[in-house]
Amino acid sequence: MSLLKVENLYTNYGRITALKGINLELQEGEIISLIGANGAGKSTLLASITGTVPVAKGKIIFDKKDITHHRPNDIVKLGISLSMEGRGVFPRLTVEENLLLGAYTRKNKSEITTTISEMYEMFPRLAQRRKQLAGTMSGGEQQMLAIARALMSKPRLLLLDEPSLGLAPNLVKIIFDMIKDINRKGISILLIEQNANMAMRISNRSYVLENGQVKLHGHSKELMNNKEVRKAYLGEIIDPAVSKKVIQSLASSNL
């Protein structure tokens, strides 16, 4: 069943048309990755879905409901949650207060407490720092907090904006393992990533955005073998002669 459907979406960002007719579909239980260069429209698409940027034209359907012009707080209530890029946590609130805010739309206090302890189990680092101000933690810890906070609303669809941005490689792997775990618990995921390689490896399907349009989409495994995608997004140098030259110049530079 299709959980999220974006139909012919146009969104303006100031005077610029940032999205020009995006079509996208996400099935319940899927991980979908959105890849594309800076300014391709990935973040604008998330902002349109969460209701923080007004949509100019087109439709966003979530669970058969038209949510195109809903306000952000109503969209959270319906079951869509966004984990913000990098430092989207509230810096002058404690870890625990940040988590409580993630559950703002929920009413039952004892259930919220249960979810908080689940989060501490999943992210033991956060349990150690529950009384610490979020802004004083490392980038990786803040990223974990952002994800945990997004899960506090018990979403059906989790939107992840650049979860690996600015993190050390070993942390990136930990975060991606967590994303897979979260998905196994039945939460559908829409993932934006600069690290296209990792994103495509864990997602079922991928959409490649360019200049506000979907350039390519399909099963991640197939797209990873697509020549264009490999060249543009997976950092592969296609021409063996060029790569040889690069290696030689590096070797002779005595680095």
Partner: peptide, 20 residues
């Protein structure tokens, strides 16, 4: 708590489901 969240970042507070 919601007031303090809005004070720190109004947009992100809205994304928590707070009617800012």
């Amino acid at each position: 708590l919601a007031m303090r969240a809005v004070e720190q970042n109004e947009k992100n507070a809205g994304l928590m489901g707070i009617n800012t």
